[in-house]
C-alpha cells in the first residue's frame, strides 16, 4: 500500500532520533528531537509484548 511522503518522512525522523521504544510505556517514539533526547536518559524498558508472551 502507498503511504504518503509526509508520513514516511515523519516516521523516518522519529525512528532516527529515538533510542527508546515501547508501545506500552510513556517511552514512546517521539516526533520531536528534544523529546527524543530526554528519552535517551531513561532506562530501556521491555517492549510491548503484543502477543509475544510465551
Amino acid at each position: 500500500m502507498k503511504i504518503s511522503k509526509p508520513i514516511l518522512q515523519a516516521m523516518a525522523l522519529a525512528v532516527a532520533v529515538t533510542t527508546v521504544g515501547s508501545s506500552c510505556k510513556d517511552g514512546l517514539v517521539k516526533p520531536k528531537k528534544e523529546e527524543a533526547k530526554k528519552e535517551q536518559q531513561r532506562k530501556l524498558p521491555d517492549n510491548c509484548p503484543a502477543c509475544g508472551m510465551g
Binding site: 509526509p6 508520513i7 516516521m11 522519529a14 510505556k25 514512546l28 516526533p31
Partner: peptide, 16 residues
C-alpha cells in the same frame, strides 16, 4: 490496548 496513553500518540502514527 498496548498503548496506555492514547494522547501520547504522535500525529504521524495516527495518520499511518
Amino acid at each position: 490496548d498496548a498503548l496506555i496513553n492514547q494522547r501520547s500518540m504522535p500525529d504521524w502514527f495516527g495518520e499511518l
